[in-house]
Write a protein that binds this DNA or RNA. Structure first.
Length: 428
RNA sequence: GGAGAGAUGGCAGAGUGGUCGAAUGCACCGGUCUUGAAAACCGGCAUGGGUUUGUAGCCCAUCUAGGGUUCAAAUCCCUAUCUCUCCGCCA
């Protein structure tokens, strides 16, 4: 959620900045509603104030033992007038709030303008794609030959976009997650967390999955009037970031750096037909998430650091990658700036997204009322929140399988994973 | 799952219809005292919103949440959520 002041006093400028990311703000409608809100709220509060005053004087008169009847007569139909205004006001506020909740974050000044992913800007490249002197296979073929990836049986049990892993491939999937967690906790200063995989509606509103993107989620029961029940997390960002919801953190505790390894569940309603083959786009996948809660002045530096933490995973695995900064039109709903890390996939002969690291600034914090209190400050202020994948485990597995394949279809186990796989050097 | 008890400010904890946004204690901040610190003493100390040139003043809201009763609700009624105790079940 944007600062409501932007929508009140800087409406035009805000609309312009939102337009760069392809979001059209209905300025005219909003300013009319806002004007109405102002007068209605003042009228309502005035009525309220006079009712309070009369009620108070009744209490005082009674205490003195005076006759209350003449004062009672003053009340008249104040109550019903007040109820009507209150009703009208709350409906208006609800409308305004619904608009505010569906407006995306403002892009940071440093974000390149652009309409879609073709205008993202590469900021760096690491490693050199390996030259293979044989025909490379993709992970689906390699996995099936090794008996480690079973797409067919998963379809029988659940449906498409689910996977059964077995044997050393399953073990490598687990090893990757362990390796990432250990790296972030021992070298990057994150605290490991174990979190609920089912979350309530408030949490999803807090991080911005709701109200707009409910169809991307799996819900445990059908939508009802009261809500939509608990939902499976699409990312550990939701539980991790919501830890700070409705809290005031002492400045001395900042920055808060949390990591968790969880399965993630995405229905990806809009993406049928994309990446139908293989592990790239699954309804269920594991991810190690990084979340930081920081002071506003630290958040841009924290984004660089967090992105570097995610990149370190690929460096240690010796997987070539490039990092791009997303242009205004390609950023997620709540982000003010996002770096995507893309890993080299030889079978596709291209770089594919494996991590997305974003600075949400105070966008989520405002929705969540996640604040911190500085010693010198009188009032608590909103935190800045950041999150990033460090990394998506399934896609990392794909990258390892494809980049470390040998001509005979076996997979060399990356050096850093061997301690997690009983010293195993090769699969197959 | 059954039965009972609860939910009040950062924390603990009073308050059962009328100047209650809320006693008191702790914590915290400022001051006096002290070489310094502690103790003691004095003072301050919730959040959100509106109005406003205003971090002044005034006004509104908030005692888990949502409804209701009333001129008036922390206080009475209903519903939801959560917590605790006991029983059952379970990894």
């Amino acid at each position: 959620m944007l600062d409501p002041k932007f929508l009140r006093t800087e409406l035009e400028a805000t609309a312009e900045r939102l337009a760069t990311r392809g979001f059209i703000l209905d300025v005219e409608r909003l300013s009319k509603l806002e004007e109405k809100r102002k007068s209605l709220q003042m009228a309502t509060e005035e009525l309220q104030a006079s009712r309070n005053a009369i009620s108070k004087s009744i209490g005082q008169a009674k205490a003195k033992g005076e006759d209350v009847a003449p004062i009672m007569a003053q009340v008249g139909d104040l109550g019903s007038q007040l109820d009507a205004k209150k009703q009208e006001l709350s409906e208006l506020l609800e409308t305004l709030n619904a608009i505010a909740m569906s407006v995306p974050n403002l892009p940071d000044e440093s974000v390149p303008a652009g309409a879609d992913e073709s205008e993202n800007v590469e900021v760096r490249r690491w490693g050199t794609p390996k030259e293979f002197n044989f025909e490379v296979k993709d992970h689906v073929e390699l996995g099936e030959v090794l008996g480690g990836l079973d797409f067919k049986t998963a379809v029988k049990i659940t449906g498409s976009r689910f996977i059964i892993m077995k044997g050393q491939i399953a073990r490598m999937n687990r090893a990757l997650a362990q390796f990432m967690l250990d790296l972030h906790t021992t070298e990057h200063g994150y605290t490991e967390a174990y979190v609920p995989l089912l979350v309530n509606e408030e949490s999803l509103l807090g991080t911005g999955q709701l109200p707009k993107f409910g169809e991307d989620l799996f819900h445990t029961k059908p939508a009802t009037e009261e809500g939509q029940g608990l939902s499976l997390i699409p990312t550990a960002e939701v539980p991790l970031t919501n830890i700070a919801r409705d809290t005031i953190i002492d400045e001395a505790e900042l920055p808060v750096k949390l990591t968790a390894h969880t399965p993630c569940f995405r229905s990806e309603a809009g993406s049928y037909g994309r990446d139908t083959r293989g592990l790239i786009r699954q309804h269920q996948f594991d991810k190690v998430e990084l979340v930081q809660l920081v002071k506003p002045e630290d958040s841009m530096a924290a984004l660089d650091a967090l992105t570097a933490h995610a990149e370190t995973v690929l460096q240690k695995l010796e997987l070539p990658y490039r990092t791009v900064v997303l242009c205004t039109g390609d950023m997620g709903f709540g982000a003010s700036k996002t770096f995507d890390i893309e890993v080299w996939l030889p079978a596709q002969n291209t770089y594919r997204e494996i991590s997305s690291c974003s600075n949400m600034q105070d966008f989520q914090a405002r929705r969540m009322q996640a604040r911190y209190k500085a010693k010198s400050a009188k009032k608590p202020a909103l935190l800045h929140t950041l999150n990033g994948s460090g990394l998506a485990v399934g896609r990392t597995l794909v990258a390892v399988i494809e980049n470390y394949q040998n001509e005979d279809g076996s997979i060399t186990v990356p050096e850093v994973l061997r301690p997690y796989m009983g010293g195993l050097e090769k699969i197959g």
